[in-house]
Design a protein around this nucleic acid. Sequence first.
DNA 1: ATAATCTGAATTGTATACAAAAGATAAAAG
DNA 2: CTTTTATCTTTTGTATACAATTCAGATTAT
Lengths: 207, 207
Amino acid sequence: MEKIKRSAYQHAYETIRDKILNGNLTGGEKIVEDRLATELRMSRTPVREAIRKLEEEGLIKSKKVINPTSEELRQTFEVRVLLECHAVRCAALYMDENRKKQLYECVVTASTGSRDEVMAANERFHTLIVHASSNPVLVSMIERMSSVIYLFRREVVYYNRPNLIDEHRMIYKAINEGDADLAEKLMKNHLEADLAFSLHSPGFTKE
Amino acid sequence: MEKIKRSAYQHAYETIRDKILNGNLTGGEKIVEDRLATELRMSRTPVREAIRKLEEEGLIKSKKVINPTSEELRQTFEVRVLLECHAVRCAALYMDENRKKQLYECVVTASTGSRDEVMAANERFHTLIVHASSNPVLVSMIERMSSVIYLFRREVVYYNRPNLIDEHRMIYKAINEGDADLAEKLMKNHLEADLAFSLHSPGFTKE
DNA sequence: ATAATCTGAATTGTATACAAAAGATAAAAG
DNA sequence: CTTTTATCTTTTGTATACAATTCAGATTAT
């Protein structure tokens, strides 16, 4: 059991981010540098830098954990649709056989694996497609959005959404057959269904 | 002549960013916290934070000013096309008369104004369209890319590109007539022409 | 001459200290 | 009773100090 030594800054960043994503720091809550610094047993300096980074990512705004509204979720998904639909077109046109095989394995795992395996496989499915764009700018933008998306649907038991696996399977098929138009259309529907499901999940009954 | 007092951090951020965009700090150059701090007559702390922000924006990578390649410029434009084409569709479908009028004024100014007015009008033309998306997430992503785009074409005498103003005029017309498909197509061509021009400009003859 | 290792200088990362600003509480005025 | 403002407290912004790391050049071994 070797101990990898991360920098204090990185440690702070990851810990605080996870606290937010897990709901240990909840929406609207005030972020106090000093409190976190003593809690993490380090000085305020690296904590400060971590907070700034989280502000960039949109998880924190003016020293408070963001309180996501359904409107923001829609806006984020609107951009996500644009980017991922482009990526899936690239996948249909250019993805090599090896990657296609990996994609297929994600679909299989998602219908047979354990709870955690299913989660991981579904996430990997999207990641593979996004990377098929071969465009680091696009990839980094999707990654930037992922925390916020995750936060929004924290309480959604995601892998239980009906049809999700079937939709993935159909997208895979379109990619495999090189049908870019179909793949794009399916991806759009898929993401919109996802959004609708998130909006109607328990976490959002308030709105 | 009133003196607005910005925070040291903000001052540092703006100064360093401008130095990079103007070419005072040139590609590949090492960024040294201490040097900048003494130069700006402040401590390293705010300088550090400014540098981190510039790293987020992609102007600095591992303490060096980035050295843009034509490949990166293409990748950035690929994303820009996706986002702005969506925005221009929204503009065609939903932009109100007042905004359309402002858009038209940009076209007029661009063909009659002074050097600086032309620059400003052309930039505002795009900004107006991007904001027509009514999507802050999309807007912020475009903004994030803008520094890098500007850096890439630092040496391009942008407003001298042939046809640019005509292209803007045609896009305006499509928006004004509510023809989303046409507007989108024109915008795509416009941005691609822009990219091609940037790639063939003096600054890139090396590649 | 080349590669390996050592040494010292430059630079970054983290901690602490203090000053400025923002916020909360309580007393005074309307 | 509400609003104001005065005072105290908390929190943030910036400066300074020190430790850890990285990097360049010199020195030695092969």
